[in-house]
Simulated scan of single mutants.
Amino acid sequence: MNDHDVIIVGGGQAGLAAAYAARTQGLTPVILEAGPEPVGSWPRYYDSLALFSPARYSSLPGLPFPDDPDHYPHRDEVVDYLRRYAGCLDTEIRTGHRVDAVTQDNGAFTVHATGETALTAPIVIAASGGFSRPHRPELSGLDTFTGHVLHSGEYRNPTPFAGQRVIVVGAGNSAVQIATELAGHAHVTLANRAPVKFAPQRPLGKDVHFWSAAVGFDHLPIGHLLKSPPATAVNDPGSYKAAILSGKPDQRRMFTTIDGDTVQWPDGTRERIDTILFATGFRPELSYLDPLGALASDGRPLQDRGLSTTHPGLAYVGLEWQRSFASATLRGVGRDARYVLRKLTGNRVSIGKRCCQPVG
């Protein structure tokens, strides 16, 4: 006898979307969230973070993002939105429940959380996020660097770096946004292996997400066809490329060696550095699935479009490029959650909305 229809590991945007999809399939899910509230990693992101998609393209199923649909929501707005969404889901959410292990016996999964009674269910959704584990590339000499090393997941604002010599490593949206912000307070270089590519945020006066939705790119289920996620261009509102062209920050190819507090650039020049900040992305934290043998040797889930290829009844929501370009975003997790829940339940007919209603 199972305790629940569905156990969802993770109470961020992916877990909340999975719970909504389960409810519309007539199932009663329970969410296990390690943190103090079901808002995912959003409160831990840097202070100035704003979405690159307008509010109209940044909603979970059943609850439109509030206020002007064309504004770009700030980090704190997203946190408030997720709190509201969780509050109207009509789903049991257990916070402070860090899942340590998932096992399976006779087709039933048992989910073990630290200090809690184990729970059982025929379906487990791993929705602990594709951004749970900061990724730092292995660089020769980094372990001997005597300056300060941090990841973008630890960065909050530029104040502590005033007057420093800083290298930001990366070529994506966060790298450019952080480097540009820091450049107003410190001497900053954006270091990468290939030049940053930019794309206008509002081509022909419309946000890029308008065009993406218009041509159906967001919905294309091609993620499973990619051997590795493609490099994407930085969404530029008009200020980022201009800042780099002005040298604040300057852009250089990746340094070649580290010696104490000094790096060497490809042209042979050496320079003392105070801080190296890696804006090099994240990886999913799914080690609780190790007992199942559901992961590859590098920790990647063995899955096809979110469905485990090793354990029927196990699925994922929120992985980067899980099914589409938008899979790991607010606007994309709902579609992926609906897809995996329908597959897991035999494509039963949806019973309609059971959770959130639009906010007036």
Rank of each mutant, 00 (worst) to 15 (best):
L302K: 12
G205H: 15
V208P: 03
P29L: 05
G223P: 09
I258S: 08
E320A: 00
I93E: 07
D105S: 03
E138R: 12
V30Y: 06
P54R: 08
H71R: 14
P122C: 09
G35E: 01
G247Y: 12
T269Q: 13
H187Y: 14
A294Y: 02
V99M: 01
P61V: 03
L32P: 06
I273T: 03
D3M: 06
K206L: 15
P284R: 10
R75V: 01
P195H: 11
Q13M: 10
T262V: 13
A243L: 05
E271K: 04
R323F: 09
P158R: 07
F65S: 00
L226R: 04
T95Y: 01
V78C: 12
I7A: 00
V215I: 15
P301S: 00
L16M: 09
F255V: 05
V149Q: 04
T310W: 04
A214C: 10
T28S: 14
E138C: 08
L82R: 04
H209S: 01
F131C: 08
Y339K: 00
A183G: 15
D261H: 15
R23Y: 03
V168Y: 08
Y81R: 14
G26C: 09
E116C: 10
D90H: 08
V349G: 05
A127G: 07
W265V: 03
V39C: 02
I31G: 02
G141F: 04
Q251T: 14
Q25Y: 05
M1S: 11
P158H: 12
A55H: 13
G306Q: 07
I351T: 07
S53Y: 14
Y316F: 13
W265P: 10
A113N: 04
P284C: 08
V99P: 03
E320V: 04
D261E: 06
Q303M: 06
H209T: 06
D298S: 07
S327Q: 05
Y85K: 09
R283K: 14
R165F: 08
A108N: 10
I8W: 00
V78Q: 08
R342D: 15
Q104C: 07
I167T: 02
R84V: 02
R193V: 07
A14G: 02
I244H: 03
I93N: 07
N173S: 12
P29N: 01
V168A: 11
P29E: 11
G15S: 09
L314C: 11
G11F: 05
W321K: 04
S327H: 02
A171H: 14
Y316T: 13
S140C: 08
G318N: 03
L32I: 13
T257H: 11
F65W: 11
Y46W: 14
G87D: 15
T117H: 06
I222C: 07
G147C: 12
G318H: 06
P29I: 00
S53R: 13
P230T: 01
F278A: 12
D336P: 00
E37L: 02
R300K: 12
G352T: 06
L63E: 05
E271Q: 06
P230Y: 02
T257Y: 01
T280E: 13
